[in-house]
Amino acid sequence: MSSKERQTGMSVIVRTTARLTVGFILLYGIYILSHGHVSPGGGFAGGVIIALSFINLMLAYGKDTALSKLPKAVTSFFENLGALILLSIALLGFTGGYFFLNFIAKGEPFHLFSAGTIPLLNLAISLKVGAGIFAIFVAFVLLKYEPEKNKKE
């Protein structure tokens, strides 16, 4: 039965490769995200890579496995949470008198713990972008086609 095979995902080679690489892709995304303020990269790129690791999982194992790891409601929650974190960090800038003020001590340049609020903002953006892109992918996959009869004629 082809429908049963599709539910369990693609061939053994693809599934094995996906199982081996998915962790590294996720880790690489986290690296890009956490070094966003000292090297090229940042919240958007990191978020996209993190989303790609889940998308790989979904392509290899089918939608049920990926959705059991990261359900739709959780994705939507993380997306909104990212936006709210971003907004509240920006609002906390009012403690120093300005919206979006970088109110934490900046530290030394080119160290991981530096640049004040920027790593936190990167984190919020990566939550928003990663969850958003995964949600878009899920929405496109789950959309059911129910072709209507052409009523016009």
Binding site: F44, I136, A139, F140, L143, Y145, E146, P147, E148, N150
Partner: peptide, 23 residues
């Protein structure tokens, strides 16, 4: 580019829905 992503996504979503209705 991010804005372009959002626009493209909404256009594709509309296109899928249009295909569903009009065939």
């Amino acid at each position: 580019i991010v804005i372009g992503l959002a626009t493209t996504v909404i256009l594709i979503a509309l296109a899928m829905r249009i295909f569903e209705k009009y065939g």
